Amino acid sequence: MIIGYTTGVFDLFHIGHLNMLKNAKSMCDKLIVGVTTDELVSYKNKKAVIPFDERLEIVRNIKYVDAVIAQESMDKFETWKKLKFDVMFVGDDWYNTDKWNNFEKQFNEVGVRIIYFPYHKGTSSTLINETLLKLRGEKKD
């Protein structure tokens, strides 16, 4: 059995999120998804629009997802020590960054493959959020 793992904030859930989960599930037998907690989102001075518990419930009910956990740390290798997944899925916006090059070295040592999916350029939670702010006249320029 191949266990896959991916993470995300999954705020303002959109087609890019769904496609990523669908593609990930097609490459493993069991897909575990880490949903970023509100506290961890705030480390980038951001705030999720949808509360963590609701984001968790949305992702839990996607048919491609077998299990959902709280992502409380950015340390993917610590999570691997608990879950022992075989493959990790991540957006290609992280490809060849220092952070992910380091993760790749760690994961290679334990036989975990990292698969980079094309980042969904057309739709993003950030873009949706900015559009809503503009529509409401709340955008600060």
Rank of each mutant, 00 (worst) to 15 (best):
I3R: 13
T6Q: 04
G8A: 08
G8H: 11
G8V: 08
V9D: 08
F10G: 05
F13Q: 07
I15M: 12
I15H: 03
I15C: 09
G16E: 04
L18H: 10
L18C: 03
N19M: 11
N19Q: 14
M20H: 15
M20V: 05
L21H: 09
K22F: 11
S26F: 08
S26Q: 14
M27Y: 10
C28L: 10
K30E: 15
K30V: 15
K30I: 15
I32Q: 12
V33T: 07
V33S: 08
T36A: 04
T36W: 00
T37N: 07
D38H: 05
L40N: 09
S42E: 12
Y43M: 03
K44W: 10
N45E: 13
K46F: 09
K46W: 11
K46I: 02
K47I: 14
P51D: 12
D53E: 13
D53I: 05
E54Q: 13
L56I: 14
I58Y: 11
V59E: 04
V65W: 08
V68E: 13
I69E: 11
I69P: 03
A70E: 08
Q71E: 12
M74Y: 02
K76V: 03
F77G: 02
F77C: 05
F77H: 09
F77K: 06
F77I: 03
W80P: 02
W80Q: 01
W80S: 02
K82L: 15
K82E: 15
K82M: 14
L83H: 05
D86I: 03
V87H: 06
V87S: 08
M88Q: 05
F89H: 03
V90T: 02
D92Q: 02
D93Y: 02
D93K: 08
W94G: 01
N96R: 11
N96T: 06
N96W: 04
T97S: 14
D98S: 15
N101A: 08
N101Y: 05
N101E: 13
N101R: 14
N102H: 14
F103P: 00
E104S: 13
E104W: 04
E104L: 11
E104Y: 04
E104G: 02
K105H: 05
K105W: 04
K105M: 10
Q106I: 07
E109M: 00
V110L: 02
R113V: 10
R113C: 09
R113S: 13
R113K: 15
Y116W: 06
Y116N: 07
P118I: 00
Y119M: 09
H120C: 10
K121I: 06
K121V: 06
K121Q: 12
T123Q: 04
S124W: 04
S124C: 07
S124T: 14
T126F: 00
I128M: 12
L132S: 01
L132P: 02
L133T: 06
R136V: 00
G137I: 12
G137L: 10
